[in-house]
Amino acid sequence: MTRDPLIRVTAMPADTNPYGGVFGGWLMAQMALGAGSLASRVGQGKAVVVSATDFAFPGAMAVGDELSVYCDLLTTGTTSLTIAAEAIARERNSEATQTVARGTFKFVLIGEDGRPRALARGGAA
């Protein structure tokens, strides 16, 4: 089975922490962007993050490495979606990859009125 990344981005010097490593907060933000893309597609509209849990950072990446974020829909509720995100880094000058972060995001679907709205059953998945 092949997976397509929801987003792909290169880590830049501005994305580092004071120790010169890629900042974990930047990784989490990229994962939230990828998960949000899936949530909006499945939910067919606006979706906002209401929680982020179960984060682990099993690897590290360097400036210039390419980050790919993969997401899977775990569960759906009446107005919510729970999405697992995995961040995989590819070394800049090779094909070597490693998982650098994992986490789970919960989204609530929002209607035009700014209030939670129900997930359309049988919609896009």
Rank of each mutant, 00 (worst) to 15 (best):
residue 25 G to M: 14
residue 121 R to H: 07
residue 102 R to T: 15
residue 48 V to M: 10
residue 35 A to N: 05
residue 19 Y to I: 14
residue 58 P to W: 05
residue 40 S to C: 15
residue 73 L to G: 02
residue 79 T to F: 04
residue 26 W to Y: 10
residue 108 V to T: 08
residue 14 A to L: 13
residue 67 L to T: 00
residue 31 M to L: 12
residue 65 D to L: 02
residue 107 F to A: 10
residue 73 L to H: 03
residue 86 E to V: 15
residue 101 A to M: 09
residue 19 Y to R: 12
residue 101 A to R: 02
residue 95 E to D: 13
residue 83 I to K: 01
residue 23 F to E: 03
residue 118 A to V: 03
residue 120 A to V: 15
residue 57 F to P: 00
residue 120 A to C: 07
residue 17 N to C: 11
residue 106 K to T: 15
residue 87 A to M: 06
residue 55 F to T: 09
residue 5 P to Y: 06
residue 1 M to K: 02
residue 86 E to I: 04
residue 28 M to R: 00
residue 19 Y to Q: 14
residue 62 A to M: 15
residue 58 P to K: 04
residue 109 L to D: 00
residue 17 N to I: 14
residue 28 M to S: 04
residue 76 T to D: 08
residue 66 E to D: 07
residue 99 T to C: 06
residue 9 V to A: 11
residue 90 R to T: 15
residue 19 Y to H: 14
residue 51 S to H: 02
residue 63 V to Q: 08
residue 79 T to V: 15
residue 63 V to H: 10
residue 53 T to L: 13
residue 109 L to M: 08
residue 125 A to C: 09
residue 53 T to C: 08
residue 64 G to C: 15
residue 17 N to P: 03
residue 41 R to Q: 05
residue 3 R to C: 01
residue 21 G to M: 13
residue 116 P to K: 06
residue 114 G to A: 05
residue 63 V to D: 14
residue 86 E to A: 07
residue 79 T to M: 09
residue 27 L to H: 01
residue 34 G to A: 13
residue 73 L to Q: 01
residue 123 G to V: 10
residue 59 G to Y: 09
residue 106 K to F: 04
residue 38 L to C: 06
residue 89 A to D: 11
residue 22 V to E: 04
residue 54 D to L: 08
residue 2 T to V: 14
residue 64 G to E: 12
residue 54 D to Q: 13
residue 29 A to E: 08
residue 107 F to R: 05
residue 21 G to T: 07
residue 46 K to D: 12
residue 34 G to H: 05
residue 73 L to T: 00
residue 89 A to P: 10
residue 77 G to E: 12
